[in-house]
């Protein structure tokens, strides 16, 4: 469960000048796989995530999730936004249980799991705090917990750590590795950070801008479980060199 299939997907934004945000994307992400989508800003990687989330419709092609065409957003695909997008008027706890609540689940069904996830992201003592009272990293951890509580088959993450400072980003990456290694959900992770992509993913899809295309797919065969200590291993450096070379080539086009 959690298989994502893009078959010749294009997304064109109309307007005075047409923008080909996605051009003939074909990509399959297997169950439990962690795929990073790497590319410069404006290359369409967020658009790819948005159509997958069901926030936007594809212009052409087929987009399947576990064999079903995606038509709208839903709790089976949990999205983690760049700026967390928490409800500022709800406490941390209320944010985390928002999903189960609006889906009409009974309290005993979700409460233990929500508590467990809040604990997993280390925010139990902040359950009653409001989002404005939290740091960026803490907000993002709430954003992850509120999605995981719904037990999604896929996790779609749109540069979730992009707005964090370097140190917080490292600890969030470690947290995500720990969480994912426990849950084994399918993850599509959008980023422009090469280190982050290598550290986290099983496979990196490098995208180019206008038209948005996947120009290269690089399997990352670093041993699991990984941790941020992997960032300095020779294999890691080798992958980084390879990807940087690829990006430089596309720059000259």
């Amino acid at each position: 469960m959690g298989t994502i299939t893009f078959e010749g997907v294009s997304k064109i934004y109309g307007g005075q000048r047409e923008v080909r945000a996605l051009d003939d994307i074909s990509l399959t992400i297997g169950e439990g796989e962690f795929v990073a989508l790497l590319g410069p800003s404006g290359c369409g990687k967020s658009t790819l995530l948005n159509v997958l989330a069901g926030f936007e419709k594809v212009t052409k092609g087929e987009l399947l999730f576990d064999g079903t065409t995606i038509s709208k957003p839903g709790p089976d695909r949990g999205v983690v936004f760049q700026e967390a997008a928490l409800f500022p008027w709800l406490t941390v706890w209320q944010n985390v249980i928002f999903g189960p609540q609006v889906q009409g689940m009974a309290r005993p069904e979700y409460e233990p799991r929500a508590r467990q996830l809040l604990d997993l992201v280390g925010l139990t003592s902040f359950a009653d705090a409001l989002p404005v009272q939290l740091s960026g990293g803490m907000r993002q951890r709430v954003g992850i917990a509120r999605v995981l509580v719904m037990n999604p088959r896929a996790l779609l993450m749109d540069e979730p750590f992009g707005a964090l400072d370097a140190q917080t980003r490292l600890s969030m990456q470690q947290l995500l590795l720990d969480v994912w290694q426990k849950l084994n959900t399918t993850v599509l992770f959008v980023t422009h950070d090469i280190d982050e992509a290598i550290l986290l993913s099983d496979r990196i899809c490098v995208m180019s801008a206008r038209p948005g295309r996947i120009i290269k797919t690089i399997p990352i065969e670093l041993a699991r479980p990984r941790s941020i200590a992997s960032l300095t291993s020779p294999e890691f450096i080798a992958y980084k060199a390879e990807i940087m070379a690829d990006i430089r080539i596309t720059d000259h086009h």
Binding site: A53, F55, P75, V79, E83, A85, F87, Q103, M150
Partner: peptide, 20 residues
């Protein structure tokens, strides 16, 4: 993104209006 987040978590139109 607040509206998108609520839709993603399974909220219907009425819930989005009332709760977001």
């Amino acid at each position: 993104n607040l509206i998108r987040a609520s839709l993603m978590m399974g909220a219907g139109r009425w819930t989005v209006l009332r709760r977001v």
